[in-house]
C-alpha cells in the first residue's frame, strides 16, 4: 500500500470511508443494550462473582429498584453471603406492598434455607419453619414455586442431608391436602432426594401410602412403579401396576 501511495494511486475514496463510519455507528447503536443491561444482570445465573460486582454498581446507581435488590440478594445467596442478603431484604420488609412483601418473605425463607446447619440448635426450628413456609398458601400461589421447591431439595442434596431432606418432603406431602400439581412436584423432588441419597431400597416401602394420591398422575404413578422396581420390590411394582392398569382399563 505504501508503494501504491508513493506512486499516488487512491485505494479507498472519502465517500467510502464515511459510509463505513455511518454503518458501524448504526450497528453499535442498535446492538448496545442500554436500559436492558439491568434486566440482563438480574437474570444472569452464571458468573456469580462478576454478576455480584456488576449488580452492586447498578444497585448503587438505582437503589430504589427492588428487582435489582432481589437480584443482588439472590446472588448473595448463591455465593453463600446470607448476612448480606438478609441485610438487603430487611430494607424492604416493611414496604407496604403485598407483592414485594411476599417476595421478601420468600427471600427470607430462602435465606433461612441456605443458613440451615444440622449442628446448630435452631436446626429443628428452622426445618419446621421451612416446611410450613413451603406448604403455605403464599408459596403455593407463587408461579415459580416449582423452581423454589427444586432449590429447597437441591440444598439438602448439596449438603448431603438426604435423610433430613426426605423427612421434610415426606412431611410436606403428608401434611394436608393440596393440589395434584403441587403433590406431583413435591413427589418429584422427594424421589430426587431418594435417588441422590441412595435410599430407594430403604424408603421405597414408605411411599406406598401415596399410591392412591399419585395414581391420578401418569408420570408420578410411573415414577412410583419405577422406584419400586429399582428398589428391588417387584411385587409392589406389580400390584401397583395392576391397580393403575385397571384404573386405566388397560388390562
Amino acid at each position: 500500500m505504501e508503494n501504491a501511495n508513493k506512486k499516488g494511486i487512491n485505494t479507498i475514496s472519502d465517500f467510502e470511508i464515511f459510509s463505513i463510519f455511518i454503518i458501524f455507528s448504526f450497528l453499535l447503536y442498535s446492538l448496545y443494550p442500554g436500559k436492558k443491561l439491568t434486566e440482563y444482570a438480574i437474570n444472569e445465573d452464571k458468573n456469580y462473582d462478576l454478576t455480584e460486582i456488576y449488580l452492586k454498581n447498578i444497585y448503587q446507581k438505582y437503589p430504589e429498584n427492588v428487582d435489582l435488590l432481589f437480584a443482588l440478594s439472590n446472588i448473595y445467596l448463591k455465593r453463600g453471603k446470607t448476612t448480606h442478603a438478609r441485610e438487603l431484604i430487611q430494607k424492604i420488609v416493611n414496604i407496604n406492598d403485598t407483592e414485594i412483601k411476599d417476595k421478601a418473605t420468600l427471600y427470607l425463607s430462602r435465606i433461612r434455607l441456605y443458613s440451615i446447619n444440622p449442628a446448630s440448635s435452631n436446626f429443628k426450628e428452622d426445618m419446621i419453619y421451612l416446611e410450613n413456609y413451603y406448604s403455605s398458601e403464599p408459596f403455593l400461589a407463587n408461579p415459580e414455586k416449582e423452581k423454589y421447591l427444586k432449590e429447597y431439595a437441591s440444598v439438602f442434596i448439596r449438603m448431603g442431608l438426604y435423610k433430613e431432606g426426605f423427612e421434610s418432603f415426606y412431611r410436606i406431602l403428608t401434611a394436608r391436602e393440596r393440589s395434584q400439581e403441587y403433590t406431583n412436584m413435591v413427589f418429584k423432588e422427594l424421589t430426587r432426594i431418594m435417588k441422590a441419597g441412595n435410599m430407594l431400597k430403604e424408603k421405597a416401602i414408605k411411599l406406598s401410602v401415596f399410591e392412591t394420591l399419585l395414581s391420578k398422575d401418569d408420570e408420578s404413578a410411573n415414577e412410583l412403579i419405577e422406584i419400586y422396581l429399582q428398589a428391588g420390590k417387584p411385587d409392589m411394582a406389580r400390584s401397583y401396576s395392576l391397580k393403575i392398569l385397571k384404573l386405566k382399563k388397560l388390562i
Binding site: 410411573n222 419400586y228 417387584p234 406389580r238 395392576l242 393403575i244 388390562i251
Partner: peptide
Amino acid sequence: SQQENLMELSYQSFVYTKDLENAYLIAKK
C-alpha cells in the same frame, strides 16, 4: 408416552414377579 411407559414398567414388574400371564396380557395390549 406416559401410558407406554406405564405399560413397559408394568411389563417389567410382571416379568420380575414371574406373573407371566399378566405380562402376556400387557404385551399383547
